[in-house]
Structure formats: C-alpha cells, structure tokens
Design a protein around this nucleic acid. Structure first.
Length: 376
RNA sequence: GGAUGGGUAUGCCUAGUGGCGAGGGCAGCGGACUGUAAAUCCGUCACAAAGAAACAUCGCAGGUUCGAGUCCUGCCCCAUCCA
C-alpha cells in the first residue's frame, strides 16, 4: 500500500507498506546483487548506515547459488539475515549488460552463463518463478533494458515485446502468489517503462502499462549511454503518465545530482551501484563533491572523509589511514569507503524526505547541487 | 685467490641468444565506472619528437659485424660454492 503524505512541486514524500515493513520514500535501495553488498558489507551493518531496502538480482542468484537452494534455505530474507524489504531485479538488466552472452526471442532470453557458459533460459515466467523462490518483497517485471542509443525502430519493437512480457509476468505472479508452498504470497510486482530517449514511445508505453494495475512502476533503460539532459527530459515526460497512486522507481540511477533532479520530477525509488562500486574504487562522496582517496594529496590528510558525516568510517578514521588501507589492498579500506558512501546516499535521502515534508525541496536541491560544485 | 651464475630504462623484478629506438609485471601517478561478468578497466610511467627529423640507453671499456642487449677480450660489481 503506497500513500503520498506530502507533495512539494512534483517531489513526493510517501510511505509504502509491505509485509517486510514500511518504506519511507524517496528511498535509495542499496544494491547487493548476489545477496551481498560488495565490499564486505554485512546485513548486520545496514542498520548503522540507514538502509531501508536491499536489492538483489534474479539472474545472478539463479546462476549462483540457485533460487531453489535459496528457497530451501527459507527464502532470501532468512538466507541473508535481513528482515526488511528486498527488491529483486528481474534479469532484464542482464539482457543489456550481458549482451554478448545472450539471444533474445519472443519467448524469452537465452543466456550463456557468465560463470560457466551453460545455457540458461529466462522468460517472464522463469523470472517470476525465480523471484518467487527468492521470496523478495518486490519483484520486477522481466523486460529488455535496451541501449538508449539503439535505433528507434529497435526500441519500438523491444518495448512492444516488453509489454507482452509484462502481461505474462503479471499472470504468472498471480499464479505463484496463490500456490500453497510460496514463501511470500504477497510478493509485489513492479512493471517497467521503456522507450529509450523517445518521448512518444515512453508516453505510449506508460499509458499502456498504467492500465495494468501493478504495484509500482519503474522507468528503466536510462543511464545506459544517453546524456543527462536526455535522461531528465525523459523522466519529466514519462512520470506524469504513470499512476499517481503507485510508486515510481527510476532504475539504476544514479549520481547524487541525478537523484536530486529525479525526485524533483516525481520519482520515489532509486538504486545504483555507484556508492558501492565507487567506494570499492576509493571514490567517496562528500557534500562538496567526490574525492578519490587514492590520490597522493591525501597521504597526510588527518581529516575524516567528511567532517559532517556520522558514518563508521568518518567517526573513527582519517583520509590518510583509509588511503593507506586502499593502497595496501586491505579489505577494510574498501569496506569503510562503501559504508561511507551508502551512508551518504541513505542520509541524503533522509534529508530529501525532510525537505519535502517542510516544503523546501527546491531550496534543498539547489543547496545540495551548489555544494557538489564547490570542491574541497 | 679459484669455480659457477648474474648485472636490461626513473624504484624493484623480469623477457630477450645477430635486425632492438628493447616486451611484460610490480610499485608510482592520473582517469573511468549509473536496475554490478567490475576489490575492475584504461592511460601514463628515460629524453626528445609528429619528422622519410632525430640517433639516448641493456654494468664499464674495447673489438668482430652491413648491423651487437645478444658474439669476443679485458675490467668493475653482485650472488652462491670452494680454498
């Protein structure tokens, strides 16, 4: 059950009740593709950094350890010891990211496993079955995330197929939720809007899927090669055609600035690998932009990553020490950076929620964006 | 003192047995990363240079050769072993 509590311009402050607890939006979901946030972050760390929703991946967990094993272990929540909401991505992104290892057909996608090359077929039904076995809180529809720079004709055909797949996802999810041995019989299903950078296709698709009474609506296929201007233009054009009484999820986005802009255009849910991947690579976020802790200039820097930050890294360690850990390839260096970055994102979302509640979102956004430009 | 094996660029390690303005790795320095095939990848890493111009460098000095990191001689240094 999704409920908007406040609107400030197009920015929405809402809650979403699930069987695993209430999600306060706008929210940034923390990406743990293979049922773990890369960088040695445990689910027992997530409380401290303010994580609300963990995100895992259908394709990757199907490949390893196998969704049937997860089901036998009691579902993803029990398996990874996390009792709050989990969203599983459907494998649709792997249609994009593993483009060299798959063939798309009407019935679904034939992958060659990136691990051992074995053939894996995943269509809408298979994706739903896997996600039902994983027993996530929210399942994503199986789509094709097409490169945004593909030809308009390709995008059009792809979107039409994604719509047909969505209907199959919905039917299969209803069936699975009704089965006796399904772990989460209240599993929610989000549909995904596609259409590259073509407003007409996006809007048409948004209208069609809005009729389908899904639990939420995602905008997918952005931040896959197009400019920021195109991305913002498409969000702005598409969001108004998605149901007001359902959450909007911008998949895979993005930078702190991207999120601030998208919230202002009505988006509720986000996820992105940036904070974790960048953290592993020593890039850390601050209110004044991003630092690369590998840089020699931090060798003797006794300050924390950010003076204003309350995360486990900033409360206890200097930039110089973390730089040393990173250079020495000590796992702790990555871990501290990832914890910091996720805390930074989660904390920014919390501030965003508060700013909307207080009807000063535009002001907050400007202050934030100006800050990122300042540099150290 | 003798024997054997070695000394390759800017710090370290290493490829190389007549066509070498010398390949690779580490370290260093910098960059990229958007529903994670990513603790990854890319660039740079002697000087000069975009020219049918220039002629640095393989421990040092000679020599053989059209041509030497590579073959020969001497020397220096390192390692191991023997006295």
């Amino acid at each position: 059950m999704y409920k908007v509590i406040k609107k400030d311009g197009n920015a929405k402050r809402a809650t979403m009740e699930t069987v695993h607890g209430t999600i306060q939006t706008p929210v940034f979901m923390n990406v743990g593709t293979a049922a773990a946030i890369k960088g040695a972050v445990a689910t027992t760390d997530l409380q401290e950094i303010g994580t609300q929703v963990e995100l895992s991946n259908t394709y990757h967990l199907h490949v390893r350890p196998g969704d049937k094993i997860v089901k036998q272990m009691g579902g993803l929540h029990k398996f990874m010891n996390w009792d709050k909401p989990i969203l599983t991505d459907s494998g649709g992104f792997q249609v994009f990211s593993l483009a060299g290892l798959r063939k798309i057909k009407e019935e679904g996608v034939y992958f060659n496993s990136h691990v051992d090359g074995r053939k894996i077929f995943m269509g809408p039904e298979e994706s739903m079955q896997i996600q039902s076995n994983l027993a996530s809180t929210i399942a994503m529809a199986f789509d094709e995330c097409a490169p945004s720079l593909a030809t308009k004709e390709y995008i059009k055909n792809s979107v039409e197929r994604t719509t047909r797949w969505l209907a199959r996802c919905q039917t299969e999810m209803k069936r699975l939720n009704g089965l006796e041995d399904t772990i989460n019989k209240n599993q929610l299903l989000f549909g995904i809007n596609q259409g590259g950078i073509h407003e007409d296709i996006r809007i048409e698709h948004a209208k069609v899927i809005s009729e389908m009474d899904l639990d939420g609506y995602a905008i997918g296929g952005l931040a896959v090669g197009e400019s920021h201007e195109d991305m913002y233009r498409i969000i702005e054009a598409t969001a108004p055609y998605l149901p007001e009484n359902k959450p909007t999820y911008l998949m895979g986005v993005g930078t702190p600035a991207n999120i601030l802009e998208a919230v202002d255009r009505g988006v509720d849910f986000f996820d992105c690998v940036y904070p974790s991947r960048n953290g592993r690579h020593g890039h850390v976020y601050t209110n004044r932009g991003k630092l690369n802790l590998f840089n020699a200039k931090y060798e003797l820097d006794a300050r924390p990553i950010s003076e204003e930050c309350n995360c486990p890294a900033c409360r206890n360690y200097s930039r110089a020490y973390i730089r040393h850990l990173l250079k020495a390839k000590e796992m702790l260096g990555m871990r501290l950076c990832v914890l910091h970055n996720l805390h930074f994102y989660n904390n920014m979302m919390s501030e965003i929620r508060q700013a909307i509640e207080e009807e000063r979102y535009k002001e907050y956004k400007k202050m934030r964006l100006d800050g990122f430009e300042q540099g150290e």
